[in-house]
Simulated scan of single mutants.
Amino acid sequence: MASASGYIRAQGKQPLFSFGVISDVQYADIPDGRSFLGVPRYYRHSFLVLQRAVKQWNNHSKHKFSVNFGDIVDGFCPKEQSQTAVEKVVKEFENFNSPIHHMIGNHCLYNLPRSDLIRLLKMPSCHGRSYYDFSPSPEYRFVVLDGFDISAIGWSSDHPNSLEAMKLLEDKNPNIDKNSPNGMVGLERRFLMFNGAVGKEQMEWLIGVLRDSTMSEQKVVVCCHLPLDPGAASPEALLWNYDEVMAVIHRYNCVKVCFSGHDHKGGYSVDSHGIHHRVLEAALECPPGSDAFGHVDVYHDRLYLSGTDRMASTEMIFSS
């Protein structure tokens, strides 16, 4: 992964602003476990990682906000504890002295209905949407996508978005267990039930935001729980229609960086249009005493992710 060249510090430049980042806390008050691939998961310790993140963010006066990249509680959280667990994690996030911007992940939707999550996470929702944008400075706009807009989780089984998702899974995934990629090849392995897609209405909204940002000469940072570039993530972690979303993004020159979570090992790539894709390492997979969070310093011509411990630091210099 790219690391700091020392250029910024050597030049003594101050960032325009900074923001905190963390992903995949997946807290649950249960004993440690493992992923389906056998990777250890530390369900209680992840909350301590979040506490240390908030403490560090509060010690940094330039942080204007922080972004949580989804999956704040784990799917194995006992359902009778789901709301309490979500409230506990949200309360810890709110110990941060500046705004927190949340997005919904698949594990969030395993625990609570979408409407409850929007309320508990205080998302700036309109008509039940969980995608939105905000501008922390005149020069930058942040776009938060809902990667589970079209999804087989989080909607009632007869909801049009759920029906569309199930049809896609039936067409693309030959397995009875739609969370299994067995027999699927290459990028087709993304068509799993724990992923999702950006729907038509959200895509139209995104086009409008990017068009407006281009006219306003704003640089855009896209945030989505699900990764948007195969170079930065495993095929099994990608947004179903990442290619359609990126085709829209590539029409405009305003998007500079796409951040995401979901693929717990993390990743980094620069795509064919010079857009940086940074998948953040998961707080959940930090053994006791280790961490995975960071903060991003924002400059006119680059972003610099300063990672803590298991989160790699990454310098992202814009190509234009």
Rank of each mutant, 00 (worst) to 15 (best):
K64F: 07
F76T: 15
V89T: 02
H101R: 14
L117M: 04
L121F: 12
N68E: 13
N175A: 09
C77T: 15
S151D: 00
F142I: 15
Y132E: 06
R129L: 08
R119N: 09
V185N: 14
L112Y: 09
H63E: 14
D171R: 15
N59R: 14
E80N: 15
D74V: 11
E80G: 07
I176P: 00
D177Y: 01
R189E: 10
L169S: 07
R129F: 03
K167S: 13
W155S: 00
G70I: 01
E164S: 13
S151Y: 00
G183M: 12
P160R: 07
F69Q: 08
I150Y: 00
L112D: 04
Y131C: 05
S98Q: 15
R189A: 06
K178L: 12
E94G: 06
L187Y: 08
R141W: 12
L121H: 05
A85D: 05
H101T: 06
V89H: 05
K79M: 07
H60E: 15
E94H: 15
M103V: 01
M184Q: 03
S162D: 08
G183F: 11
P160F: 06
K122P: 00
L168F: 02
V86Q: 07
G186M: 04
V73H: 11
A85V: 03
Y110W: 12
D116F: 09
L112V: 09
R189S: 10
S180H: 03
H159L: 04
G183A: 07
L169G: 01
F142S: 06
N175W: 08
H101D: 10
N111K: 11
V90Y: 02
P99A: 13
H101V: 10
Y140G: 02
H159A: 04
G154Y: 01
E188K: 11
L109N: 01
S82M: 00
K62G: 09
G147D: 14
L163I: 14
P124W: 03
L112K: 12
M166Y: 03
G154F: 08
I118L: 00
G154A: 05
S61H: 13
K178R: 06
E139G: 02
L117A: 09
S135G: 02
I100M: 11
H102N: 07
S115I: 09
F69R: 00
E170H: 11
F65T: 06
V73C: 15
H107T: 01
Q56M: 13
S180I: 05
N173V: 11
K167V: 02
G75E: 08
P181A: 15
R190Y: 13
K122A: 11
M184T: 01
S162Y: 07
N173D: 01
M184N: 11
H107I: 04
G147E: 07
A85M: 02
